[in-house]
Each structure stands twice: as C-alpha cells, then as structure tokens.
Amino acid sequence: MRGILGLLLLFALLPFLPLGAWGAFLLDVGLFILLFTALALSWDLVARTGQLSLAHGAFFGLGAYGAGLMVPHLGTLPALLLGSLLAGAGALLLGSVTLRLHGLYFAIASLAFSEVLRTMALKLPFTGGPIGLPVPPPFGGGWPLASYYLAFAVLLLAVALSLWAERSSFRLAQAATRQSEAVARVLGVRVVRVKLLSLLLGSLVAGLAGGVYAMKALFLNPYEAFSLGRAVEALVIPIFGGLYSTLGPLLGGVVLVGLEQALRLWIQEGYLVVYGALLILAILFLPRGLLGLLGGRRG
C-alpha cells in the first residue's frame, strides 16, 4: 500500500519537481506511463477472473474514437465519459455472448472482436475512415497540464477500482472464478455476473485511457487506435510487474514503459532487441514479476 501511495504521490507532484531540463520530457513520458499503466490495471482487473482479454486494444480504441468524435460538440469531460461508456457497451456486448468461453478461447474471441471493430472504424461513414480523425486537445488547449492530470485521474480511478476489487469480497469471487468456475458456483459465486462486471469495469477504465490518449495524440486512425500491439502491451505490463495485484501492474507500467523510452533514447537502433531480451530474462528469473523482487508478500 505504501508503495502504491508513493508512486501516486510521485505522479501527482511530477510537474512541480525540480527536474531541470528533463522536466518537460519526463512529463510527456509520464503521461503515457499513466495511460498505459491504467490500461494494464484495467486488464489485470479482468484477468483476475481468469479471462485473458485481447480486447483491451478495442476498448481503448472505442474510448478514443468516442471521445474524439464528441469533444467538438460536448466538451472534454462529457466526451471522455461518453467514450468510456461506449467502451463499456462494447464490453457488455462482448461479455454477454462470450461468457462461457475460457482462457485462450476467450482470448481469441476477444481478438476477433477487436479486429471486427477496427474494420468498422475503417468503414463507418462518420469516423474519418482510413484517413483518420483529428482530435482537439482537452479544454481547447488552454491549460498545458490538462492532459497530464486527466491521465493521472484515469490512473487514480484504475487504482481505486483495483484496490476496491482487491479488498472487498469481490476479490474472493474473482479468485474463485479464476481457479475453477464450477467450484465457484458451488460456493455461491454468481460467476456470470462477476465476469461481466469485471469486464465492464475494465473496459470503462480502458475507454477513458483511450479518450485521454486521443486528446494527447491529436489524431486517430483505426490501425493505431485499435492496434493489437496496445492489447498486448496491456497484458505484458501486469505479467512483468506481477499479476492479480494493484502494485504489480503499477510497477510494471512505470518500469516497462519508462524502460522502453529510455532504451530508445540511449540505444536507438535495435533497442527492441534489448527490450525483448529483458522480457525473456524477467520471465526466466522473476517468475512472479517485479513483485517477486519485493520479497513477495501476497502473490
């Protein structure tokens, strides 16, 4: 818990820390760390029920497009909310037809779901199609720190949801569902509801992250917004940091996203070779993720 608070405090104060020349750069890196970490936490939230989602790229994209399309008409916050709700609707749709699928089957079904959605974003008449969709910055661009603190708010929400799920009886329901649905049913867990609720909560956060991303990237195209790469990143971070926890994805996000940016700056050509090697080494020597390093209290 102290670790979580410390990290959050660090992010809250980042714009005011005396970082000298690197301040603005770190702030930009920090913003993307916040967004991708929130996405990772939202994935972990779903993973805790044993569902391996590859649809988080799609939720992210739905949120991004929803917010991007609505910002000019509704303003920043309502647009973000709407984008998030759009992602939630997508999750309900996906969840309600796939709730009987497990593990890899669910993974592939959710992958198929996001491929279909991406094609829709390409073909629908109001999305800007393959050319893409320009998105204005938050609050008309008047406040430079706006997107940073929006991203921070998304992460706060993700952490709050994750902590709630970790500390309430919901945790047991999720864990039981993950370990064996049959047993969970016997224990009186309403498996379907637990899975659906987890997916819904996860998608809402992912959608918000997508919306803020759109307002920072200023431009969306279906290939990028619905990218499979994003979905995979959402799953890599929690595994790297430590699954089924709040601190794990949080640590994983800070280290992994930060590491990628740093490697790209210092090594430049071929930095991804090192990145890939680090992932392999992490799995071989830190099977429980970064959390394992901290002397594993609870897995």
Binding site: A21, W22, G23, A24, F25, L27, D28, V29, F32, F36, Y213, K216, A217, L218, F219, E224, Q261, R264, L265, Q268, Y271
Partner: peptide
C-alpha cells in the same frame, strides 16, 4: 537525432526532449 518509432506515444516525448533538453 531521435527516433519517433512511427508512433505518436513515442514521437511526442522524443520531440519534447529535443525542445527542452
């Protein structure tokens, strides 16, 4: 020289670094 990674999430920080660092 900085690498934009053909990706906005990498390009924006890299650009900021050019400007401020």
């Amino acid at each position: 020289v900085v690498d934009d990674g053909t990706d906005p999430a990498k390009a924006v920080p890299a650009f900021t670094k050019l400007m401020t660092v």
